[in-house]
């Protein structure tokens, strides 16, 4: 008898739950699954041991400010031409990461902040530029308003860099620890001299790592 009563109460609870869900409106359902805006510069609800948005923002900000304080780059009488893209920015770390996240932010931030102290070359778009140059010279289009140049600009410096990491895992506790080092270098494209370099380090440990993709 007691068993029947327990079974009955269980069924009643299930029915109540089902009724609650059935009664909820689409708006309620939307509210439950509502996304929320985050501050990209702060730790979010999903955290692991790898490079996260706060690191990307902090590191690019630091590098921009450091480059702008380097006289060999930012205080030349003629603004140097610089290529900042991910072609020579390698990732040897254990984390999947889109290097463009770093180099695109560096380039755009530097370009905005440099006030003409540096000129950035869109070498990744060289084919696009060549196409338009050909149209102008064939007479398909006019020469535009900025005039023709003998050739595309050559560059004085190029950003190179590397992301490397070292992982450690405690098999007993499952705790994971990772040290990630991101290095940045500006290389003179004539002499090969490294005119500026800096590094950003991240060391983190967590019981459960997350998947970065």
């Amino acid at each position: 008898m007691k068993r029947i009563a327990t079974h009955f109460l269980g069924s009643l609870a299930l029915a109540a739950c089902a009724l609650t869900f059935a009664a909820s409106t689409p708006a309620d359902a939307q509210k439950r699954g509502k996304s929320r805006d985050l501050d990209a510069g702060m730790a979010g609800p999903v955290q692991g041991v790898g490079i996260e948005s706060r690191d990307l923002l902090a590191m690019s900000d630091q590098m921009v400010r450091d480059i702008l304080a380097t006289p060999e780059i930012a205080a030349r009488s003629v603004a140097p031409r610089i290529i900042v893209d991910s072609k020579y920015f390698t990732n040897e770390s254990s984390q999947r990461i889109n290097q463009n996240l770093i180099t695109d932010r560096l380039r755009t931030s530097l370009n905005r902040a440099s006030d003409g102290r540096m000129v950035f070359i869109a070498r990744q778009n060289a084919a696009m530029i060549e196409e338009e140059r050909a149209l102008k010279r064939e007479g398909t289009t006019d020469s535009g308003t900025t005039g023709l140049t003998r050739a595309q600009f050559g560059a004085d410096f190029r950003l190179t860099g590397n992301i490397a990491s070292q992982d450690a895992r405690n098999a007993r506790t499952g705790q994971v620890q990772r040290f990630t080092q991101i290095t940045f270098e500006l290389v003179d494209l004539e002499s090969g001299a490294i005119v500026w370099s800096n590094a950003y380090d991240v060391a983190r440990a967590a019981t459960d790592d997350v998947t970065y993709r």
Binding site: G41, M42, R54, L57, A58, S60, D61, Q62, V64, R65, D66, L68, A69, A113, D115
Partner: peptide
Amino acid sequence: SAWQRVIIQPYATGVYRERSMK
């Protein structure tokens, strides 16, 4: 500027440094 973390060991000093863009 972006937030920078400064880790200071017990009874030790820690240095924060930042530069302007302008």
